[in-house]
Write a protein that binds this DNA or RNA. Structure first.
Lengths: 211, 211
DNA sequence: ATCATTTTGTTATTTTTTTGTCAATTTAGT
DNA sequence: ACTAAATTGACAAAAAAATAACAAAATGAT
């Protein structure tokens, strides 16, 4: 026991991409696919696909390839899309609203169950049928509803305090949209989304292209 | 001539992060910093910092470290924050609105100069002082205004067609928020932002934590 | 001015990641 | 039933990335 060799983050971060491509294949009514053909569609090597998938066990068959629907479901299980997560959004600004309105998250198992803001004018309103509460109500809400993930779209100045409050309430996962990297100890997982970083890299690559 | 050894994307993608940390140091009135101290703040090795920076030349001084402001400015130059980019947003939905309203982009050199949508009700309105035009007007607009970057927040079904139209007009950089990976040939640079992917990885890591 | 300390830039080493190879297995055609 | 073609899973090799090591240079205390 204790056999599982650690799977690298590089592999994990590719899984959602496989998941998307397999979904598209299902939409096209393609029932089976070889690592070679998938590699051509995804612009990665077939070797990498096979090696990635083999981290989790053999999903394919020699001479046949992979059953698209089966592989889709298996990757879904690995990613936990068969489970549901309750999420709250902190910050009902433009980004908070955009995320609350994004239907894809629900499809992937992430339910936005509440939005919180300090702005009196927003409190009591609804975003895409989701109620906006006062930030004061967070402890109360978390006490009576299981909250798996906090999505933080608060102003950068407040991010540290908000993150601390949230973790003190026992929330163990944070999706952070502020420019400040969060790091909250061993037992809180954080995904930092740095949109500006991505845009700056795009700017770099654009300028580099024409020297 | 032709001397510059290719700098890896891994390094480039870390630059915005250095940039952020250096900015924070300036706010704290810290004038100089060693790779060791910065490494502790950033939770990476000092070795990596020195190696990354040396891809672009020596910005530090032995026995002293790095001058925070100087290094900030130099990384800014590498990233092109001293240049300005004109951007248009295609899709005035929630995400389009959120991005149009995000002030940080302007600070980093990215000006949103127009938003386009097909929805009659949105056309003619303004988002954060930026006019929303009909999608029909894109060719006309691009002809008279230099557009460096197209930010795509259109529905997934339309993304391929929109991307093709945009590139046919000569736009060479795309910031893509749709779940479909875009790949538009050698001379168009694309940054795909897959928010769902990031959220799914967070879900994976959360579940993994408690087995 | 001297010397111990600090700290870079660079090269060497190690680790991780990606890619290539191939035997074993399955498919599919005849 | 036989055989050629396709394709995986496993392992080996190569490439890339991260880390360590250290000489050279600057600092700062005495």
């Amino acid at each position: 026991m204790g056999e599982d060799k650690k799977i690298s983050m590089a592999v994990i971060r590719r899984l959602p991409r496989y998941f998307r491509y397999l979904y598209d294949l299902m939409q096209l009514d393609i029932k089976r696919i070889s690592s070679k053909e998938l590699s051509e569609r995804m612009h990665i090597t077939a070797s990498q696909i096979r090696q990635d998938l083999n981290c989790f066990g053999g999903f394919g068959q020699q001479g046949y390839g992979y059953n698209v629907e089966y592989l889709y479901n298996e990757i879904g299980k690995i990613l936990g899309t068969d489970k549901r997560f309750n999420c709250i959004i902190l910050g009902a600004g433009n980004m908070g609203k955009a995320l609350a309105s994004y239907e894809n998250f629900r499809k992937r198992g992430f339910d936005i169950v509440a939005v919180f803001d300090v702005d009196e004018k927003k409190i009591g309103t609804k975003i895409n049928d989701i109620e906006v509460y006062s930030t004061d109500k967070i402890p109360e809400f978390v006490a009576k509803t299981k909250v798996d993930i906090a999505i933080l779209t608060v102003p950068n100045k407040k991010i540290i305090d908000v993150a601390k409050e949230i973790t003190s309430l026992g929330i163990k996962a944070i999706w952070n949209f502020s420019p400040t990297d969060l790091r909250l100890g061993e037992d809180v997982v954080v995904e930092n989304v740095h949109l500006s970083d991505s845009l700056m890299v795009l700017g770099y690559r654009l300028r580099e292209k024409d020297y």
